Deep mutational scan, measured.
Amino acid sequence: VTLFVALYDYEARTEDDLSFHKGSKFQILNSSEGDWWEARSLTTGETGYIPSNYVAPV
């Protein structure tokens, strides 16, 4: 499992996005959609889309 960590805070703009804070960790579920990845937050357990340029591999 590849884990990613948030580099910045992000406020969701749609109900499909995940809001998160810098330092939040994610499991990436689908990275084939270009700049928006489907991810599960390891902090909240919620699933949604995150901007790929806001995260980096742990």
Rank of each mutant, 00 (worst) to 15 (best):
residue 18 L to K: 01
residue 32 S to G: 11
residue 22 K to W: 04
residue 42 L to T: 07
residue 56 A to K: 10
residue 28 I to P: 03
residue 16 D to Y: 15
residue 53 N to I: 09
residue 32 S to P: 11
residue 36 W to L: 07
residue 1 V to T: 13
residue 20 F to N: 00
residue 30 N to E: 08
residue 37 W to M: 06
residue 22 K to F: 05
residue 10 Y to C: 04
residue 49 Y to T: 07
residue 58 V to I: 13
residue 11 E to M: 10
residue 25 K to T: 13
residue 24 S to E: 15
residue 18 L to N: 02
residue 10 Y to I: 01
residue 9 D to N: 08
residue 35 D to G: 12
residue 31 S to V: 11
residue 44 T to I: 02
residue 18 L to W: 05
residue 52 S to W: 08
residue 45 G to M: 07
residue 1 V to D: 13
residue 3 L to T: 09
residue 32 S to W: 10
residue 22 K to Q: 08
residue 34 G to D: 13
residue 39 A to V: 14
residue 52 S to C: 12
residue 46 E to S: 07
residue 28 I to L: 06
residue 10 Y to S: 02
residue 20 F to E: 00
residue 21 H to W: 10
residue 10 Y to E: 00
residue 12 A to K: 08
residue 46 E to Q: 12
residue 57 P to G: 05
residue 57 P to F: 06
residue 33 E to D: 15
residue 27 Q to D: 07
residue 30 N to R: 07
residue 15 E to Q: 12
residue 12 A to Y: 02
residue 27 Q to A: 09
residue 4 F to Y: 15
residue 38 E to L: 15
residue 13 R to I: 11
residue 29 L to H: 05
residue 7 L to N: 03
residue 4 F to D: 00
residue 34 G to F: 09
residue 10 Y to P: 00
residue 54 Y to L: 12
residue 31 S to M: 15
residue 36 W to S: 07
residue 42 L to K: 03
residue 35 D to T: 10
residue 47 T to M: 09
residue 15 E to R: 10
residue 21 H to L: 14
residue 19 S to T: 09
residue 18 L to H: 02
residue 38 E to W: 15
residue 25 K to P: 05
residue 23 G to T: 02
residue 3 L to A: 06
residue 55 V to Q: 00
residue 2 T to G: 12
residue 7 L to S: 02
residue 53 N to L: 09
residue 20 F to L: 04
residue 30 N to P: 04
residue 14 T to P: 02
residue 46 E to A: 10
residue 9 D to V: 02
residue 42 L to S: 04
residue 22 K to P: 03
residue 26 F to E: 00
residue 28 I to V: 10
residue 24 S to G: 07
residue 6 A to N: 00
residue 13 R to D: 08
residue 37 W to T: 02
residue 22 K to T: 08
residue 25 K to S: 07
residue 7 L to C: 07
residue 13 R to G: 09
residue 31 S to K: 13
residue 35 D to N: 09
residue 4 F to L: 04
residue 30 N to H: 08
residue 57 P to Q: 09
residue 28 I to R: 03
residue 20 F to K: 00
residue 55 V to K: 01
residue 44 T to V: 02
residue 44 T to K: 03
residue 41 S to D: 15
residue 2 T to D: 11
residue 28 I to G: 00
residue 12 A to V: 02
residue 5 V to M: 08
residue 49 Y to F: 13
residue 34 G to R: 12
residue 1 V to H: 13
residue 33 E to T: 12
residue 26 F to P: 01
residue 3 L to D: 06
residue 46 E to D: 08
residue 53 N to T: 11
residue 48 G to N: 01
residue 56 A to M: 11
residue 28 I to H: 00
residue 55 V to Y: 01
residue 54 Y to A: 12
residue 35 D to C: 14
residue 27 Q to S: 07
residue 34 G to S: 13
residue 31 S to Y: 13
residue 47 T to E: 09
residue 45 G to E: 05
residue 47 T to L: 08
residue 34 G to W: 10
residue 22 K to A: 12
residue 13 R to L: 11
residue 17 D to Y: 14
residue 38 E to R: 10
residue 14 T to R: 15
residue 2 T to Y: 11
residue 3 L to E: 09
residue 7 L to M: 09
residue 46 E to V: 08
residue 40 R to K: 13
residue 8 Y to C: 14
residue 23 G to P: 00
residue 41 S to I: 10
residue 54 Y to D: 01
residue 51 P to D: 05
residue 29 L to T: 07
residue 49 Y to G: 03
residue 26 F to D: 01
residue 19 S to Q: 05
residue 5 V to G: 02
residue 48 G to I: 04
residue 2 T to F: 11
residue 26 F to H: 01
residue 48 G to E: 00
residue 38 E to I: 15
residue 34 G to T: 13
residue 14 T to A: 12
residue 10 Y to D: 00
residue 32 S to Q: 12
residue 6 A to D: 00
residue 47 T to C: 10
residue 45 G to W: 06
residue 25 K to Y: 15
residue 23 G to Q: 02
residue 19 S to F: 03
residue 27 Q to L: 14
residue 31 S to Q: 14
residue 40 R to N: 06
residue 36 W to A: 05
residue 18 L to E: 00
residue 49 Y to K: 14
residue 35 D to Y: 14
residue 24 S to H: 15
residue 7 L to P: 00
residue 2 T to W: 12
residue 57 P to M: 09
residue 51 P to I: 03
residue 12 A to T: 04
residue 18 L to D: 00
residue 1 V to E: 13
residue 8 Y to V: 06
residue 24 S to P: 01
residue 17 D to W: 11
residue 36 W to N: 05
residue 33 E to C: 12
residue 45 G to Q: 06
residue 55 V to I: 10
residue 45 G to A: 04
residue 2 T to N: 11
residue 52 S to A: 13
residue 19 S to L: 01
residue 7 L to H: 02
residue 1 V to A: 12
residue 44 T to H: 04
residue 12 A to I: 02
residue 10 Y to G: 00
residue 21 H to S: 14
residue 9 D to S: 08
residue 24 S to L: 05
residue 39 A to T: 01
residue 20 F to T: 01
residue 21 H to E: 13
residue 24 S to W: 15
residue 8 Y to R: 09
residue 15 E to N: 12
residue 45 G to L: 06
residue 58 V to F: 12
residue 36 W to D: 04
residue 35 D to L: 12
residue 53 N to C: 10
residue 23 G to F: 04
residue 35 D to I: 10
residue 13 R to E: 11
residue 36 W to Y: 12
residue 47 T to Y: 09
residue 19 S to C: 05
residue 53 N to Q: 12
residue 15 E to D: 12
residue 50 I to Y: 00
residue 50 I to D: 01
residue 28 I to W: 02
residue 26 F to T: 00
residue 7 L to V: 07
residue 55 V to H: 01
residue 54 Y to S: 11
residue 45 G to T: 03
residue 5 V to N: 02
residue 17 D to C: 15
residue 4 F to T: 03
residue 14 T to K: 13
residue 14 T to N: 14
residue 26 F to L: 08
residue 5 V to C: 07
residue 46 E to F: 07
residue 52 S to M: 09
residue 5 V to H: 05
residue 37 W to L: 08
residue 3 L to S: 06
residue 4 F to S: 02
residue 26 F to R: 00
residue 3 L to W: 09
residue 26 F to Y: 02
residue 15 E to H: 12
residue 41 S to T: 05
residue 17 D to R: 15
residue 15 E to W: 09
residue 30 N to G: 10
residue 28 I to C: 04
residue 55 V to D: 01
residue 17 D to Q: 15
residue 18 L to A: 01
residue 8 Y to H: 08
residue 37 W to Y: 09
residue 1 V to P: 10
residue 24 S to I: 06
residue 49 Y to H: 07
residue 6 A to S: 05
residue 4 F to N: 00
residue 16 D to E: 12
residue 55 V to T: 03
residue 47 T to V: 15
residue 6 A to E: 00
residue 47 T to K: 09
residue 56 A to C: 10
residue 7 L to K: 05
residue 2 T to S: 11
residue 39 A to N: 01
residue 55 V to P: 00
residue 13 R to S: 11
residue 12 A to M: 04
residue 9 D to A: 07
residue 6 A to K: 01
residue 53 N to A: 14
